[in-house]
Design a protein around this nucleic acid. Structure first.
Lengths: 103, 103
DNA sequence: CTCATCCGTAAGCCGATACTAACCGTTAGT
DNA sequence: ACTAACGGTTAGTATCGGCTTACGGATGAG
């Protein structure tokens, strides 16, 4: 994937979040994905491009159909990225975090 | 925080990513944050509101200064959210491979 | 070959949002 | 009380981004 930062932008849109959620359960073709979504198939295709460029999904071609699934590696990269921030934030404020209402 | 989804939107902007990165290293006042950023203090203040509403930062007042820091709980919520997707994608991937192969 | 299916892309519209400038309330120091 | 420092808010503008429509390329069935 490009980097974890583009991943946040990719998941910032509600429609893409919905697409991503459905893909995380099982692989789907573009047309299948478009059914049940309040947008056209064209919009879905554009969203899939964003998710793919961010490294969050991969696709394979089966005849005329393009089937997408979530790429666990991309998700792991974002999770690990956040984990570094989490640890860094904890390290610089170890004292305050223990007192819930200090801030 | 509101939910993990608003967190992604909050971190989708490059300027907010930069703000968040600097805050994760140490707590900073708004003015300190604005120095070294290519935008005005006003813009920084607006970005901080978005990050705060998303539960990613918290603030405390010290005289006339408002000091912000990263909230580890908000970061952990997003990380855990991604972790669920990661596990789900792995399980789904495993199922797909069993009935078809070669992605 | 013909035709239908499937999907990506281009153009354009329109709402969302990141930004600056200006203003105002609060606090601290003299 | 006056003034300066600090920062949140508003108004206005410009750019960005998600959407639809229309189109074109690729594959498969007949």
């Amino acid at each position: 994937m490009a980097n974890a930062l583009t991943g946040f932008a990719a998941l910032s849109d509600p429609t893409r979040q919905q697409i991503f959620d459905r893909l995380s359960r099982r692989a789907l073709a573009v047309g299948e994905l478009a059914e049940g979504l309040p947008v056209t198939r064209s919009a879905v295709s554009q969203h899939l491009k964003v998710l793919k460029d961010a490294g969050l999904v991969v696709s394979r071609t089966e005849g005329t159909r393009n089937i997408y699934r979530v790429d666990p590696k991309g998700v792991a990269a974002m999770r690990d990225y956040l984990d570094r921030f989490w640890q860094r934030a904890l390290a610089s404020f170890k004292d305050e975090v223990e007192r819930e209402d200090a801030w």
